[in-house]
């Protein structure tokens, strides 16, 4: 009883439902021919399995059909009458308590070492994976950096010994003009004494020129990108002819529409050879 529970459903049968030849109404969704499975304890009502005295229908036989007599034969069908009790069987004897082998011999006497080893191995895998992943990511990011041939072109060397005092030199660096001004002492004094805090883009001259006599700037007007003219303008520095911006002798915007001072590129002096390295 415990193993079988019928699912009870209530279905309203339509009064006009068709009846099968057996008299059972043909009810969709409802199997009226279902039977409860056999009960395991003998009440004398017999088993609901195949009858032992009648050959089962799947064993063949003659049947009637709308197309005439129909014979179905299977060679392997056993005779139901020949019934033999199986006296030998291979299934295990059912016992109340399942037998579990004795695994105590295989058990570690102390699990601390095993636990630490497992954590250590898993952690080591994490360490190596993280290291490999970090290398992969950093190598990949390096592919986005400028390649060696671009970097080789990114630096320009200028021989400073050929530039006399008080002269401008314009060189090309990364496609842009670079002004190099060998300033005289009076120009240095003028640039340093100016009250730079009142300027549009306040910046002291000390922050712009690494060496006071050398001023290195990008020759691109910060207004709209024209190339200013040297030794011109109201402040003795540079003058942009496009829209009239005036820069002083330190390249700072003093007048006109330019919002910022002329940009100073990264540069270094090579004192031993008297060279300037831009970039």
């Amino acid at each position: 009883m415990a193993s079988f529970q019928a699912v009870k459903k209530s279905i309203n049968l339509a009064p006009t439902v068709r009846a099968l030849p057996s008299g059972v109404p043909a009810a969709p969704l409802l199997n009226l021919a279902v039977r409860a499975p056999a009960e395991q304890h003998g009440h004398g009502h017999g088993s609901s399995g195949p009858r032992a005295d009648v050959p089962p229908s799947w064993a063949g036989g003659v049947s009637k059909s709308p197309f005439g007599l129909f014979t179905k034969t299977y060679t392997t069908a056993p005779s139901p009458r020949v019934f033999q009790q199986r006296l030998l069987h291979t299934s295990a004897v059912v016992k109340d308590a399942p037998e579990v082998p004795d695994f105590s011999h295989y058990r570690a006497p102390n699990t601390d070492n095993n636990r630490a080893l497992s954590y250590f191995m898993v952690g080591t895998m994490g360490v190596l994976s993280a290291s490999v992943a970090k290398s992969s990511v950093s190598e990949f990011l390096q592919t986005m950096a400028a390649s060696a041939d671009v970097l080789a072109l990114a630096k320009v060397e200028v021989d400073l010994t050929t530039i006399p005092e008080g002269k401008n030199v314009i060189i090309k660096w990364r496609g842009k003009p670079v002004f190099i001004r060998h300033r005289t002492q009076s120009e240095i004094d003028e640039a340093r004494s100016a009250n730079w805090k009142t300027f549009r883009d306040p910046e002291p001259d000390e922050a712009r020129a690494k060496k006071p006599e050398w001023l290195v700037m990008l020759g691109v007007c910060t207004h709209l990108g024209c190339v200013p003219i040297g030794e011109a303008g109201d402040y003795g520095g540079w003058f942009c002819p496009c829209h009239g911006s005036h820069y002083d002798i330190s390249g700072r915007a003093r007048k006109g529409p330019a919002p910022l001072n002329l940009e100073v590129p990264a540069h270094d002096f090579n004192d031993a050879e008297g060279k300037l390295v831009i970039g």
Binding site: S118, M121, V122, M125, L128, S129, S131, V132
Partner: peptide, 15 residues
């Protein structure tokens, strides 16, 4: 690196 990682991953899988 990758051979060590392979051995460790086999250990971890079995673990």
């Amino acid at each position: 690196l990758f051979s060590t990682l392979f051995v460790l991953s086999v250990y971890t899988k079995r673990f």
